[in-house]
Design a protein around this nucleic acid. Structure first.
Length: 260
DNA sequence: CCATCATGGATAT
DNA sequence: TATCCCTGATGGC
């Protein structure tokens, strides 16, 4: 679930349900008991997504959340009893949301937030278009582009699925050195990431192919049609066997013919 | 019941 | 590059 689109969607939803509200906070699991106690009864001022990071701003502190690989958030109008694994339950008069299995759930001060902001690369889901920063980040790195796209200091918010799908769509081998990608291709890759990830936010789900390409509207696309290469065995375009390899500690999928 | 795996990332070596 | 952490779903006994 959690690539950047998930986090931005979560930010949007939680903004609507919790910002401006006095929230009840608790930690059924107990591991965030002190933090929850400090947030309990405070008014939430803002929610912001930065790449895969989520920041909740309160009057005198920030709540930082990172879902990592396993983390999830669920919410209800009328919540059930929390499961024992719930790290943090936030509730307003409108909604209750549970946070489960996050890599990070911590109270941060402004300096820690600034450190994060400085470290992260441009986020395709940022409303402002930072295409030049993206191109500069690629130009600066000699590592494989498949590794660079997962480096949050180069681009913030892409994960393993978007890496595979975007590279296929750009017809780039994941092994191409990042700085060998020409300017036109790099800009197109960035624009594609922005468009595709916005769709991801809209449907809360990753689409690697568009209605144009599949011949069905977004919501009626079959599961098997949603990806080009991620976890696929054969390339739909050329019938070649999809390569499955390790790159930057994650499994990358790519078509050796289409992405020569 | 247990092993394995997953859309992530920090840290050690 | 390897190891560890966090949780839940799945599939093989």
């Amino acid at each position: 679930m959690p690539e950047g689109h998930t986090i931005h969607r979560l930010a949007r939803d939680h903004r609507g349900w919790f910002v401006g509200e006095t929230v009840a906070a608790s930690s059924p699991q107990g591991r965030f008991a002190d933090g929850a106690a400090r947030l309990d009864g405070q008014r939430l001022l803002a929610v912001q997504a930065l790449g895969k990071h989520l920041l909740y701003r309160f009057a005198d502190t920030w709540l930082h959340v990172h879902l990592g690989l396993f983390g999830r958030s669920r919410s209800w109008k009328r919540p059930p009893e929390p499961r024992p694994s719930v790290r943090l339950r936030l509730a307003s008069s409108k909604r209750t949301a549970d946070l489960i299995g996050p890599t990070s759930c911590a109270l941060w001060d402004a300096a820690e937030v600034a450190t994060l902001t400085d470290r992260l690369g441009p986020d395709p889901l940022d409303e402002e278009d930072h295409v030049d920063d993206f191109v500069a980040a690629l130009t600066r790195r000699r590592r494989a582009i498949g590794a660079v796209l997962l480096d949050q200091e180069a681009v913030a918010g892409l994960g393993n699925v978007y890496r595979a799908e975007l590279l296929f769509r750009a017809r780039l081998s994941p092994h191409r050195p990042a700085r060998s990608v020409d300017d036109v291709t790099a800009r197109a890759l960035w624009a594609d990431a922005r468009e595709l990830m916005r769709v991801g936010v809209r449907f809360n789900r990753i689409y690697g192919r568009t209605p144009d390409e599949v011949g069905r509207p977004w919501s009626r696309m079959r599961k098997a049609d949603r990806y080009n290469v991620y976890k696929r065995r054969v390339c739909w375009r050329c019938d070649a066997a999809i390569r499955v390899e390790d790159l930057a500690n994650r499994t990358v999928y790519w078509c050796p013919v289409c992405q020569a």
